[in-house]
Amino acid sequence: MIPAAFDYYAPTSVDEALALLREHDDAKVLAGGQSLMPVLRLRLAAPEVIVDLGRIEALRGIRDDGEALVIGAMTPHSVVQADPSIAEHAKLISLAAAAIGDPQVRHRGTFGGSLAHADPAADLPAVVVALDAEMVIQGPDGRRTVGAADFFEGVFTTTLSEDELLVEIRVPKYTGWGAHYEKFSRVAQQWPIVAVAAAVRLDGGTIAEARVGLSNMGSIPIRATAVEQALVGQPATAEAVRAAAARAADGTSPPTDLNGDAEYRRHLASVLTRRAVLSAAGAG
């Protein structure tokens, strides 16, 4: 189908974009379009105005500001995936970005778009939650920053209000951490049935710190804190990790759909967590 008609704006600055959003009641932001476009084509949404962020250069690119890596919201997955500084300081992000969709989707789809879209099955949200990233939001009253854990509010909903934009994501550095993204799906291009993002810092053979995030185990991405705590101080061995990973599904309420029920997802969460942590620790 062909989308319903709309007025199109392609601002070249964030301020201009924000002004457009303020001006128009029924406006939708277009980033990479890889989630929005199908929605428009199926006419599940028919906004009157589309504000395309594609020409705002300031929103693109990755920089290192010393303490953190700063990823512009409009940076495509393919760029994130291949970026050497991300590979060095936040390997988990490179791995998860590479696991998204397919090459064409990764050429267009954006880091910020994926987070703003807040699909519970998406790959990146669990990663930014696990890594305690900060989401930098710009609105009519200027900028505000929220932690990733507070950004996601529900299925397709975030703390962003209609006149705000996600402009950049600040990721603390995890230099020297091991990382693994374990995505379980039925076919290659599919979104995960469950995915586990794990990063660990080893001290000798012992896990000194761990970060574990879960995708599609609830309406929002989940940080498996029980697992993280159980891992600290443990040796990176199969038995120790297995015991910790058994707690992966604690407190989750995963969905039931064609690909599995909640019980299966809880089981998967612990199996995949074990595998992800072991791989991250280089023991997989």
């Binding site: 379009g33 476009m37 199908p38």
Partner: peptide, 16 residues
Amino acid sequence: LLDGRSVKSCSMFAVQ
């Protein structure tokens, strides 16, 4: 190919 990289031409508007 858009500027040399593959894209799905159904998933972008001509204006883009």
